[in-house]
Design a protein around this nucleic acid. Sequence first.
DNA 1: TATGAATGAGACTTCATTCAT
DNA 2: TATGAATGAAGTCTCATTCAT
Lengths: 215, 215, 215, 215
Amino acid sequence: MSAIQEPNPAASKRTRRKEARPGELLEAALALFVEKGYAATRVEEVAARAGVSKGTLFLYFPSKEELFKAVVRENAGRHVADAMREVAGYTGTSAELLHEFIQRWWTQYGGTPAAGLTKLIMSEAANFPDLAQYYQDEVVQPSHELVRRILQRGIARRELREVDLNVAAHLIVAPLVQLVTWRFSMAPCCPTPLLPEPQALLDMHADMVVRGLTI
Amino acid sequence: MSAIQEPNPAASKRTRRKEARPGELLEAALALFVEKGYAATRVEEVAARAGVSKGTLFLYFPSKEELFKAVVRENAGRHVADAMREVAGYTGTSAELLHEFIQRWWTQYGGTPAAGLTKLIMSEAANFPDLAQYYQDEVVQPSHELVRRILQRGIARRELREVDLNVAAHLIVAPLVQLVTWRFSMAPCCPTPLLPEPQALLDMHADMVVRGLTI
Amino acid sequence: MSAIQEPNPAASKRTRRKEARPGELLEAALALFVEKGYAATRVEEVAARAGVSKGTLFLYFPSKEELFKAVVRENAGRHVADAMREVAGYTGTSAELLHEFIQRWWTQYGGTPAAGLTKLIMSEAANFPDLAQYYQDEVVQPSHELVRRILQRGIARRELREVDLNVAAHLIVAPLVQLVTWRFSMAPCCPTPLLPEPQALLDMHADMVVRGLTI
Amino acid sequence: MSAIQEPNPAASKRTRRKEARPGELLEAALALFVEKGYAATRVEEVAARAGVSKGTLFLYFPSKEELFKAVVRENAGRHVADAMREVAGYTGTSAELLHEFIQRWWTQYGGTPAAGLTKLIMSEAANFPDLAQYYQDEVVQPSHELVRRILQRGIARRELREVDLNVAAHLIVAPLVQLVTWRFSMAPCCPTPLLPEPQALLDMHADMVVRGLTI
DNA sequence: TATGAATGAGACTTCATTCAT
DNA sequence: TATGAATGAAGTCTCATTCAT
């Protein structure tokens, strides 16, 4: 930010490195935990991928488990709150809003590395129930709540028919979750023939949802 | 011996056990691998859950990895072939067929313990790429092919509009996969408020799909 | 021997088998212990080679260790006593006697499967010190004593020069022991080019010994 | 740094250890493998004897088997090549040369801890045939070749009678091998009465060989 | 702060031994 | 007497964690 006049130019690289360390480690850890699972990921690999030694990792995180928890906390949804505000002030049609929501979900989460978190939580929920709960509270419930509000708004505006908000929310979210789960599990290891482009899938999903709920 | 009516009248408890053991171990292993993942599951736990000692497991499976592979092979889809045949001879409307398909999927796979396999493969794909490929070939592709045929039949009968078969198939399957993934990951560890009943979800899903594709 | 009129012909085969069992097991055990060593030999292999099941072995020998001890005791020298008597009554020259001794050693021990015992004891002495002691007392010392007597007889008859009996005995025995050690260690696994025939080696050894001691 | 005279002045205890570790482990492993055999030696014992923990051993050798192979390779004959050169330039009589050879064999190999390798290979040949072959190629054959050259030189100089070089070489080597085999098998566990001093045995052996081959 | 050698608890696997049949 | 399924102690090897430098 106001780093224009650096007070101590000599120390800058070192200092910046030092401050960046946890982030680099978290990034490396996310990628590896997602790819191989918690147990099969060795801390030494994480350290190596972040460009430091094994010992250094333990200067920033007291244990492998704490590293894992930090990975989850660090990547668990900040976006929902933003989206929630936008819905409140949205003026377009529900069809547009649903398309918009699905598109934004992809550009801001589903298409980013952070989306690996979804697969990670699915895989490790039983081994880290408190984290699963945390993810549920911080990500899943808010997301569903967001979708429910979109639907409720549509119903109130007589654009959408009356449906069980909760069930519908699950059905709207499911293909999105499924898309990232696939992206981080099967896709990297066995090239699927006929795998649709994400964009095509998202577009048709939005279209189907609108058709299924309209009137 | 009067073994005519009872093939194994003298079959000792031991002998009968011997025949039942692999199945019991596979069942126990499926449950634990699904719950905790491959790495976090100790063979001793599997053995204990099957009611035998550590050593006994190794009489039937030469290693933990082979046990895992056997679990996958044993549970990978037999149902798809049956369903394929039924579609070929189906006489009802496409709407009915889609409802039927979704319902059957749940009673024959999604609602059974074998469905844990889906979550297991998602979690371990990167660590066992050959198994992931096997699952892809034996389960995923046939399932998608089945759905594509249902859709094609509907289009040919002018009941369904023309859509990209492949994309639509993915969208139809996604909530089903998502349902079992959830059932074996989050559901057992953190009771979700507002979690819909599977039946309600499946019904609405079938309804939405039909609405989304009709005309 | 006096088995001519068999009292119970029906039971004969079974009975004979039963009585032969320990011998068959000991034979199998000797071969395997010699080949692979005590620790690397599995009791199941011994049983299989003797044509019985693992459990049966334990009907005859209470443990693997007792089986091993029985193998050693069973094969440890009966021949030395015979030879000792013959030396006492021998009337030929010392040169003839030495040739005779070396030749008989080969036909009665060195060339037989029992010679594997020598290699076995060498290999396992430290793990079974009491057996090593037993072998020392029952085989090694009597053998050396036998050779010393042969030498002493030759010196008394002025056929051989006066030498340290003990040292000479060791030098006479060493190539014999070495011959069987080789036969049961290197020979079976890596075909030695230029390996002399045992007979050629024994002949030259006897010749060298006689030349080295005569006058 | 004033590192000119002392290359590693600040070489920490740890660093110096790091360099010494493999050697210490190999030394410990040689002793234990020789004493107890490969299978009966536990890696933890090796580590303990080298003053480190179990895990440390695996930092330097990837498995017990690789440790064993390293032990063999590390101790397999460097001396033969030296001796070969000396024979080529030797100017004394064959009697002197044979005495010299036997004496040197003892001071440079037979009397050192490395001689345990001979017993080790004898014991484990069948379980590690490739190592046995290696030993045969690197140690046995060169040694025999060396002795054959000594004999051939003697025959050419008309000091020794014409004999089968190969058989004679085996007879010359046999008591040496036997001496070290005994030293590492029976000797440590059951004190042999009348066991000759190595020096006495070697002297008489050289004397006997010279007498047996002269003219 | 960073390193990497060292540790040791814990996992997989083997195999001598038991025992119901 | 004979079998072979079952057991569990013991061994090899891995890897999170510590700590001297």
